[in-house]
Design a protein around this nucleic acid. Sequence first.
DNA 1: TCATCGCCTGAACGATCGTTTAATATACTG
DNA 2: CAGTATATTAAACGATCGTTCAGGCGATGA
Lengths: 223, 223
Amino acid sequence: MRSSDDTRTAAARIRDAAIVEFAANGVTGSTIRKIAAGAGVSPGLVIHHFGSKDQLRVACDEYIAELIRDVKGDAMASGSGFDVTAAFREVGDIPAAKYLARTLVDGSPHVAELVDELVGDAVKYVATGVEAGMIKPTEHEWGRAAIMTIWGLGALVLHEHVERLIGVDITADLSENPTAASAYIAPVLEIYGQGIFTEATLQQMQEAFVDASTEINQGKETA
Amino acid sequence: MRSSDDTRTAAARIRDAAIVEFAANGVTGSTIRKIAAGAGVSPGLVIHHFGSKDQLRVACDEYIAELIRDVKGDAMASGSGFDVTAAFREVGDIPAAKYLARTLVDGSPHVAELVDELVGDAVKYVATGVEAGMIKPTEHEWGRAAIMTIWGLGALVLHEHVERLIGVDITADLSENPTAASAYIAPVLEIYGQGIFTEATLQQMQEAFVDASTEINQGKETA
DNA sequence: TCATCGCCTGAACGATCGTTTAATATACTG
DNA sequence: CAGTATATTAAACGATCGTTCAGGCGATGA
């Protein structure tokens, strides 16, 4: 696996190999021996550098989180802030998107913190969009931004299903092949553009929902 | 773990205990010994009934898929077909939603098949909605339905983050506490109702997208 | 030159894994 | 009732896991 012109530190090679392995098979599904083989080192060296499998996993979490922090600003600036997926294209040889997809489900404090930051970014992105008259205002600033972030991350986590269903690999760089990516982007833009419900349906649903709510907590008047 | 008035077959108890374990720790993170303990039997009996850990996992996949097929019709009929999550409330003691969340990421032919069916259901649900004048028509029938399904499933997969961010456990029955659930449902209804982009933004984005597409197409033709 | 120190390896250890096996209890059948 | 199939267990096997350990290698500094 290791090429002779690999200038990375052994510790860096181990970390990168671990990310590949964790992304593909999950943490419990990965073995130190396989990671060591991927990095071209002995299993003992993995422990020597990282202490334990769990500490290696933490190091990977932190590294990926930092990696995404570095590139997410570019994605926001490029105008595709409504789709967090845009921030998680694979960086170099590192399957950051696939690693994140796994870790979002397995659970990790560092990645949870990153998600919170992404929601904060989305809130800011949406707020500036509202100020510029490009995005509709809302009563639920935080909730709307959170759900847009969750939807984007959720699609990323389910990238295998997205690819099977729509034929687009959203872990890859979509900007390189916009024609193929349109199968994913066009419907997303449509929903975010005009919604799906007609006026009548929306009003009806909100009324039904308010009725159900006021059953529990009466006295609250609608705006 | 096993209560004396448990009338289930030992095989059924093992299967249910495996679902709980798989849902909580994933397949590779679960052990036959723990599953056996959860079912109140010996590890050997697990193998005797299911052959192997992998066959046990397949049995769980099939069982959960069938379980969801049974209840998903009710959710569609209740009018919340726009949110697949509604179909996956925990059934009895079985954490079907959490199991599905794990399996959607780990990958399983049976669950992938189920997802395809859910998209098919969504297409039908949307089509009837369009006919009834409740849902706006679209050029991307399949794509829109697929993305709505993916978004719903994605939120389910990231239920831990949804709960941390918005304070709503979408694996639980939301209808039992509509007030709390509104933090999740209200923004979703808003986005599905009116979108987020203003008319100007939508047009601008679609033009930019078409430009990018034709750039590629023209480049390919000249090359 | 030699002692030192960090990088690294190969072998081994104990634990735990999925699975097998032999044996026993229970239920069904004729 | 005898006989056979099924349900179930305890114990053990081999494989593999994460981790430890003793030592070799190569650069560095005095």
